[in-house]
Simulated scan of single mutants.
Amino acid sequence: MLRSWWLAALMLAFGLLVAVTQDEPWLAGVEFVIFVALAVLLSPLVFPKSLTAAQAQERSARDGRPIVYWRPGCRFCLRLRRRLGPRAGRVYWVNIWNDPDGAAAVRAITGGDETVPTVVAGGEAVVNPEPGWLVQRLTA
């Protein structure tokens, strides 16, 4: 769990450090707000609730929804999440930093590395797909 939040905590720490060393109070406030925004973007908060790999696989087998394996701080995962918009709730999200089985599933798909996002939809696994690819499957 702690591994998922380290980037966000680092951004907050840097933001605080920059703010206290700034001579202009208004500029310190602006810089701190920027670092807080970065912390939120790099945290698990912008993603729907993660499941374990076993839960996601079981539910996907039952209803056919895609599974997205992701990790906090991944800009490609964030891009995919942003492009999905409200449709992100129709996908099962597995944080590979919180679930060793999810990380193992990604390694099995990618040939040994943990490249994310890795998406499994309809029995097809795609590593770092274009967001439009997944949007198309969700709207079909």
Results as ranks from 00 to 15, higher is better:
Met1Leu: 02
Gln136Val: 01
Ala13Val: 06
Pro131Arg: 08
Ser60Gln: 05
Phe14Trp: 11
Leu10Ser: 05
Gly123Thr: 12
Arg71Leu: 10
Trp70Pro: 03
Glu58Phe: 04
Trp97Ser: 13
Arg71Ala: 15
Arg59Met: 10
Phe14Asn: 07
Ala61Leu: 08
Tyr69Asp: 09
Trp6Ile: 15
Glu124His: 11
Gly102Asp: 03
Arg87Gly: 04
Gly111Tyr: 15
Ser43Cys: 05
Ala19Thr: 00
Val135Phe: 10
Asn128Trp: 09
Ile67Gly: 01
Asn128Gln: 15
Asp63His: 09
Trp133Met: 05
Tyr69Leu: 02
Leu41Met: 15
Gly122His: 03
Trp133Leu: 07
Glu130Tyr: 07
Trp6Cys: 10
Ala61Arg: 15
Arg90Ile: 00
Thr110Ser: 14
Arg65Tyr: 01
Ala121Arg: 08
Gly123Gln: 10
Asp113Gln: 14
Trp133Pro: 03
Ala54Gly: 03
Arg90Cys: 00
Val20Ile: 13
Asn98Thr: 11
Ala54Cys: 00
Ile109Phe: 11
Val120Lys: 04
Ala13Ser: 11
Thr139Phe: 06
Ile96Gln: 13
Arg59Thr: 06
Arg82Ile: 11
Val46Gly: 06
Ala121Pro: 06
Gly102Ala: 03
Trp97Pro: 01
Leu78Cys: 07
Pro72Phe: 12
Gln57Gly: 02
Val20Glu: 03
Phe76Gly: 02
Asn98Asp: 14
Pro131Tyr: 05
Asn95Ser: 08
Phe76Met: 13
Ser43Lys: 05
Pro131Met: 01
Val33Phe: 00
Val127Cys: 10
Thr139Tyr: 07
Met1Ser: 00
Ala88Thr: 05
Asn98Ile: 01
Arg79His: 14
Arg59Val: 08
Ala53Pro: 04
Met11Glu: 09
Trp6Pro: 00
Gly111Asp: 10
Ala61Gln: 11
Leu10Phe: 02
Ala61Ser: 08
Gly132Arg: 09
Val46Arg: 02
Ala88Met: 06
Cys77Val: 06
Leu42Gly: 01
Arg71Glu: 14
Pro48Gly: 08
Pro86Val: 13
Trp93Pro: 07
Thr118His: 06
Val119Pro: 08
Val106Arg: 10
Tyr69Arg: 13
Cys74Asn: 11
Arg65His: 10
Pro44Trp: 03
Ala54Gln: 12
Glu114Trp: 11
Arg137Ser: 05
Thr52Ile: 04
Pro25Val: 11
Ala53Asn: 15
Ala125Phe: 14
Leu38His: 02
Gly111Ser: 07
Gln55Ser: 01
Ile96Lys: 13
Ala28Tyr: 06
Gln55Cys: 04
Pro131Cys: 05
Ala37Phe: 11
Ala121Ile: 02
Ser4His: 03
Ile109Met: 07
Arg90Glu: 15
Val127Arg: 06
Pro86Leu: 08
Trp70Lys: 07
Asp101Asn: 14
Val33His: 00
Thr52Glu: 04
Val91Ile: 10
Val46Asn: 02
Met11Lys: 00
Arg107Leu: 08
Trp70Asn: 12
Gly123Lys: 11
Leu27Phe: 09
Leu45Tyr: 09
Thr21Ser: 15
Ala39Tyr: 13
Leu27Ser: 05
Glu114His: 14
Trp97Glu: 13
Gly123Trp: 03
Arg79Ile: 00
Glu31Cys: 09
